[in-house]
Design a protein around this nucleic acid. Structure first.
Length: 431
DNA sequence: TCTGGGGTCCTAGGACCC
DNA sequence: TCTGGGGTCCTAGGACCC
């Protein structure tokens, strides 16, 4: 039996999640905005047809949206994450091996399915996901991940295929590869595209037929791998166990520019608090945190400043109090009092790159943190926040100001329909 | 006079992804 | 007024070692 990988993804996934719970959105252009309601990150076909591009800033398209009746939403990751989990539960009914690749994409191993039954199974899968979650999807099938991704792209763009494209058959595949532009290949970004075009490559088939060795010179081993994958030789295995993450970051733009030190420290302390939660969920700790903050390149005429500093912790930890101290220390160490033209900071963050599991981390002889007290305290805090909502319990040092001038904007967020009892959708029956 | 060779580790930066 | 956030992988080059 030949190897077969399917890639299934949600169509305009965030927008589709919004539509599931608001039938009035059917057929209407819908977009979902990034954090801070900054720019469009998901668009339905109707919104794309209006010319709204990926990543387009909200303030530039707001008038158009009002005029054309586009429904815009702030991102609601709680909802999208839960819908994603539901979809993946269904995928597991259809395949023994599922790799969750992103919030809206998963690879499924279909190698055990007979070649002439794969497309049928894919149609069944789509229908089931649609019926059980309300999310429309597309499925691409191929002998390698790269070809499955390409098949998915074809399924999405050719309406006649009804959402399923199977590139298993070599002759059929060869015909498709001649028709698709090389820029659609997974892993070919702007820089590689320019190099390939300079080499006279236009279609995916052109790339497939290139000699891999010179490509490796120009595009590293990544480019060479893509060629092999396009030829049907698998270089990328299915990753069934999520790898231990190597780094972790919490970074946010401010809703309003920040000019004073205490506000900035509060922001990084809040980011440190969130970082601690993320680390603890994976049982991970860090020995260094990098704190950064900077002004915006869009603030022409204002003085520019970009700061980044790394603070060392006494030992690997995920303790929120220790992380907050480190974050505040990073600001204290780098803060400069403004002159008559103050710096208007637009963004701050806290980043770690050296994560390790706490159990394996070495402990110093001197200056150790008190893990015996920290562990239960953090566990209690996490438990409270899980039960009563994030932010129910925070360290006082994270800042208690009710009104956080810097806090991220989510002005158009939909309810957390599936995870918060108080926000359940209501249905009314006509008498 | 003669100025090796190979290895590891770390970091910064580029590229790409969703 | 207003321009997202969070990852991974790869390579080159320097420091250091024997």
């Amino acid at each position: 039996m030949s190897r077969a990988i399917a890639l299934i993804d949600g169509n305009s996934f965030y927008c589709s999640c919004e539509r599931v719970f608001d039938p009035k959105l059917a057929g209407v252009p819908v977009i979902v905005l990034s954090n801070n309601d900054g720019c469009a990150v998901a668009r339905t076909a109707e919104a794309k047809a209006l010319g709204i591009r990926m990543g387009e800033p909200w303030f530039k398209i707001r008038d158009l949206c009002r005029r054309e009746g586009v429904r815009a939403f702030s991102s609601n990751y709680t909802l999208y994450g839960d819908m994603s989990a539901r979809a993946n539960a269904i995928y597991r009914d259809f395949s023994p091996a599922v790799e969750i690749y992103s919030i809206d994409e998963s690879f499924l191993d279909l190698s055990d399915v007979r070649e002439d039954r794969r497309a049928e199974l894919a149609r069944d899968l789509r229908a089931t996901v649609r019926a059980w979650t309300g999310i429309p999807t597309c499925v691409g099938i191929g002998p390698t991940k790269t070809l499955a991704k390409l098949a998915n792209h074809i399924a999405k763009t050719i309406p006649d295929l009804a959402g399923v494209c199977d590139l298993t058959d070599e002759d059929e595949r060869a015909a498709w590869l001649c028709r698709i532009h090389v820029g659609e290949v997974w892993g070919i970004g702007r820089a590689s595209l320019a190099k390939l075009e300079a080499m006279g490559v236009d279609s995916v088939a052109d790339l497939r037929d290139l000699d891999p060795r010179p490509v490796r010179k120009a595009m590293t081993v990544v480019g060479e791998r893509i060629i092999h994958e396009l030829r049907g030789l698998a270089c990328l295995p299915l990753e069934l166990m999520p790898a231990q993450r190597k780094g972790c970051a919490v970074t946010r733009s401010f809703a309003n520019r920040v000019t004073d030190r205490e506000t900035l420290e509060q922001a990084v302390a809040a980011h440190a608090t969130r970082l601690g939660e993320k680390l603890r969920r994976g049982g991970l700790g860090t020995t260094h945190v990098t704190v950064f903050y900077h002004t915006s390149t869009h603030d022409q005429g204002s003085p520019m400043r970009s700061v980044s500093t790394t603070v060392t912790l006494p030992e690997a930890t995920s303790d929120t109090l220790a992380l907050i101290s480190a974050a505040r220390a990073g600001v204290a160490r780098t803060w400069r009092d403004p002159g008559d033209r103050p710096w208007r900071y637009s963004k701050a963050g806290i980043v770690t790159t050296d994560l390790m599991t706490l159990e394996e981390s070495p402990r110093p002889l001197f200056g150790r943190l008190d893990r015996e007290r920290s562990g239960p305290l953090m566990a209690a805090m996490d438990e409270c926040n899980a039960r009563f909502g994030r932010g129910s319990v925070v360290p006082a040092r994270a800042g208690l100001e009710a009104k956080r001038a810097w806090a991220t904007k989510f002005g158009m967020r939909s309810p957390r329909y599936t995870t918060q009892v108080s926000e359940l959708p209501t249905a009314r029956a006509a008498p």
